[in-house]
């Protein structure tokens, strides 16, 4: 991995000195999720090419391996949601957060809270009813785990009174809820809407109704920043343009503050994202699905830095993140201007 960095550095130098616009390759790892839409749009719109970059996408099946691949140098940048595991890895010095991915924001759909039919029938109607019920999550320390922790904090109930059931995968979570083996889920919007529409569960609220939070990020390794800072700056610039396109097309609000899609603007962008997220669906179907799964993304990919500090503090309080982990050390504020809520 050291050799690769050196080679890349040499390539970058050659590029600068020669002045020729040779394409430089950046390997990016991501999941096929709409929350990475800004990246896909930037690729489709040719923003990376304009910066002289060739992006080689690597798709993963789970979030954790993306972070590990960045640490090991197998990929140059990655995009995922924040998890306890991510913070522990970042705290050991292997990762640097450089720009924002999706965010939970009031007024925009994000993860939804679903209640099983059986639990709903017995009176589980609102967040306050969580104590004494079970919640299906993917894994310990996942973003779902964090979100139930925040709901508990906001609504003032003891998280220990919610029985957390790690189920490893989203399909397993959906299956467990349908068969009433867990009472509730916090889950991505497209799955939530599908289950609720089919009558398999009841949607009792959106997470963003109660809390805003920085869902995930674009990150790289310290070695990468050291060796190829200029390349990364170009990459982030192109990515920000993608985020801007995404936000203006997909995140419009009407006069009443309700999100609306203007087909003329949204459909082409949603179609681009659908190519990556739903590659096996017909374009029209994919476009429709993408619109139903859209998360809020900051138009300039700015991070809510204070929220990340808060997340780390909460994970630490639960014993899931090591006490030595310092968010300041793993966030590099230098790539994007105007990050919000930066602690002094």
């Amino acid at each position: 991995m050291a050799i690769r960095s050196i080679l890349a550095g040499v390539a970058a130098l050659a590029c600068l000195s020669g002045g020729a616009l040779a394409q430089e390759t950046v390997v990016a790892g991501a999941l096929r999720f709409v929350s990475n839409g800004a990246l896909f749009v930037a690729i489709e719109k040719g923003f990376f090419k304009e910066e002289g970059l060739e992006v080689e996408l690597r798709f993963f099946q789970a979030a954790q391996p993306i972070a590990v691949a960045v640490v090991s140098g197998d990929i140059d940048v990655g995009m995922t949601a924040f998890t306890g595991g991510f913070y522990n890895l970042a705290g050991k010095g292997g990762l640097k957060v450089i720009a924002a991915q999706a965010r939970e924001k009031k007024g925009y759909e994000g993860n939804a809270v679903l209640v099983s039919n059986a639990a709903f029938a017995k009176g589980f109607r609102k967040i306050e009813d969580f104590p004494g019920h079970s919640l299906g999550i993917t894994q310990v320390g996942s973003s779902f785990h964090y979100q139930i922790g925040q709901l508990a904090r906001i609504k003032g109930f003891d998280l220990k009174r919610v029985e957390l059931k790690p189920l490893q995968s989203l399909p397993a979570m959906a299956a467990a809820l349908k068969t009433n083996q867990v009472d509730a889920l916090i889950i991505a919007p497209h799955i939530a809407k599908g289950l609720a529409a089919a009558g398999d569960a009841h949607l009792i609220g959106w997470y963003s109704d109660f809390d805003e939070y920085q869902f995930g990020a674009l990150f790289t390794s310290p070695k990468m920043i050291e060796a190829r800072r200029a390349t990364l700056e170009k990459f982030v610039r192109a990515y920000q343009k993608g985020a801007g396109e995404f936000a203006s097309a997909m995140l419009r609000l009407d006069g009443a503050g309700k999100r609306v899609f203007d087909p003329a603007a949204a459909d082409p962008i949603a179609g681009m994202i659908a190519k990556y997220v739903y590659p096996s669906d017909p374009p029209a179907e994919g476009t429709r699905k993408v619109k139903g799964a859209t998360f809020y993304v900051d138009a300039q990919a700015r991070l809510d830095v204070g929220d990340i500090h808060g997340q780390v503090a909460w994970y630490k309080s639960q014993g899931m993140v090591d006490a030595a982990v310092d968010p300041k050390a793993f966030i590099d504020l230098g790539f994007v201007k105007g990050h919000t809520n930066v602690p002094r």
């Binding site: 954790q64 972070a67 998890t83 306890g84 595991g85 991510f86 522990n88 890895l89 050991k92 299906g136 894994q139 310990v140 320390g141 996942s142 029985e163 957390l164 059931k165 790690p166 189920l167 490893q168 397993a172 467990a176 083996q181 867990v182 899931m320 993140v321 090591d322």
Partner: peptide
């Protein structure tokens, strides 16, 4: 212990893996 377990050596190992501990 991958599915729905909070206790057990297997669940503990999985959680530690997920948390990168």
């Amino acid at each position: 212990e991958m599915i729905g377990a909070n206790e057990g050596i297997g669940a503990f190992i999985l959680a530690a893996g997920n948390l990168m501990q």
